[in-house]
Design a protein around this nucleic acid. Sequence first.
DNA 1: AAACGCTCCAACCGCATGTTC
DNA 2: CGAACATGCGGTTGGAGCGTT
Length: 216
Amino acid sequence: MQGAGNGEYRKGLWTEEEDRILTDHVKVHGKGKWNQIAKVTGLKRCGKSCRLRWMNYLSPSVKRGVFSEEEDDLIIRLHKLLGNRWSLIAGRVPGRTDNQVKNHWNTHLSKRLGIKQKKCKVSASSSKFSEKLGANSRTKLSSNDEPILSHNGEAEIHTEIQDNSEKVKEMTSSQDPVLFGDCYDNFWLSNSDPFSCSPNLMEFLDQSLDLFCYNL
DNA sequence: AAACGCTCCAACCGCATGTTC
DNA sequence: CGAACATGCGGTTGGAGCGTT
């Protein structure tokens, strides 16, 4: 793909010098064009590696150190709602990256909660629900998930979303019936096709997560 | 002190999606 | 429209560091 494995690019831990080169480059040129960095700077790292290093470690927005109780609690709640959608979860935990959240979950939180690795991380229904929540941003299934869609799966999906929507409505209506009633109805009742209303879905998710965080 | 086992996290890999030409 | 390339995501792995024997 990008020459990895043919000796053109280095692998493994980054050195301070490599960090400095990458940081300097991003400061001057900004993020993006990751594949150009090796050519421009002489850094022997592939674009993916550069991006990952910046996003997970070098970026000033990345918070280091141990997770607080509040962060743990937030991650647990979000994971219950979203499943293994680490980027979505990380987006709601200020200063934490998807990799950090994923590692923290796998090494600490899943143990604390007594959740076995690879299986039963979330209930089947919430897992599938989360797939739909992320349907407009990413559709990949984990290796352990059953495919949601069969060729004739729309009815099944709609039924399931309605089932889950009742749960969410129940869950959220206790927070702020007025606000949630509005955004809930805008989303869930806006369209008979669950996949054609993703913007509303994500808006609804955003609002529900905002309230989640607010009520912590 | 050395060997071993375990934990944890940085980084890699494969794949999906988005973008450009 | 489709191929090539770029980016992003989630699962997995490698190895440094630490504790135990």
